[in-house]
Design a protein around this nucleic acid. Sequence first.
DNA 1: CTCGGCGTCCCCCGGAAGGTAGAGGCCGGG
DNA 2: CCCGGCCTCTACCTTCCGGGGGACGCCGAG
Lengths: 207, 207
Amino acid sequence: MKTKIRVVLADDHPVVRDGLAAMINQQADMEVVAEAGDGEAAITLYEQHRPDVMVLDLRMPKRDGVAVVQRVLEVNPKACILIMTTYDGDEDIFQCLSQGAKGYLLKDAPRQEILSAIRAVSEDRPYTSSTVAAKALQRMAKPSLTQRELDVLQLVAQGRSNKDIARRLSITEGTAKTHVKAILTKLDAISRTEAVAVAHRRGLIHL
Amino acid sequence: MKTKIRVVLADDHPVVRDGLAAMINQQADMEVVAEAGDGEAAITLYEQHRPDVMVLDLRMPKRDGVAVVQRVLEVNPKACILIMTTYDGDEDIFQCLSQGAKGYLLKDAPRQEILSAIRAVSEDRPYTSSTVAAKALQRMAKPSLTQRELDVLQLVAQGRSNKDIARRLSITEGTAKTHVKAILTKLDAISRTEAVAVAHRRGLIHL
DNA sequence: CTCGGCGTCCCCCGGAAGGTAGAGGCCGGG
DNA sequence: CCCGGCCTCTACCTTCCGGGGGACGCCGAG
């Protein structure tokens, strides 16, 4: 038999780590070599162990998944990273995937899917669950917000007025309104409140 | 040795169920007798197995935690239910606790806390993690929304205009505005968008 | 270089939102 | 029984939001 697939886990919930570890160690062809509870530990442990696969939660303390992917791929561009998160429709997913994460899974995936995703990624084959693939296509069609618009959107989501947003971003109220208008158009929303709802659904913002 | 504490798990993530099951079955004094992936199964399995403790996720398909708590306590008012969820600041928690759930935990709790919570609940002692207890006290001080206001809030959160809200609830626009005003006052928000942000933070609404 | 996207700024205007100040009906608890 | 909370409705007024334009400098891709 070949050597086992060495896996590092990163998730802030001990319960989830235990679950994955139990699931993985039960398999003959893979084993967990380390577990991290936050983003920084994840990076450290990756460098220490150089595992074949890293299973990564998107939402973590200290550094989120996106930052970890970025950093790890800087160190080792061939790293095989499997993203695992609770939410679909999350913009962060696409950031991770376009940055080079090899796979993406939802936490509510059945055991079998999780395991085959790990195997796929370990062989450098990309794995993306079909629901996510579908979302990706939808997303392509839709206009994306600029960085500045995301800044504004963030403040809009906090309930700030245009005037308030302008003050915080050191621009005029007129400019703030221009950005808000652009956001409304791109998100196909009638009011700022609806824009927030849509943006949240798409994972453009995290409340 | 006494008979083991018999536990039923209910969570929609296979990974989490595995993690809890592994953690629990490793203990000498407890065992998992059944696992449910949604609310309906949870109810069925409870009635079938009559476990000493039921560990319940708040967010589940088909029936959410609140409904399950209600139903199970109807059948057996002495049922020991431990709520376990990802989010704090969630209004549902208080509904569950006031309906008779015996304990509440966050999913990011360490192993030891989870296990001792199960033991406490199995002996009919209430268990509430300190962070939640603190929130409960804060909540007491704050004004609560009426049912009608929650209805309106739900629509506000979807980005509906006052006129739209009025139409959907079969009331006049003026009345809708009255409700929105009350919401703004109670949530201490300046604009409807801020109200949505606050309400979401407090778990009054789920987007 | 030229074109397009981005960020910044400006105008006008109608309509929606939010603040103020009431008032009547209905129901449950003291 | 009467008080208080809730839901409903009303009118007036100010401010803000959102739709429609147009304009400028900057920068990077073609």
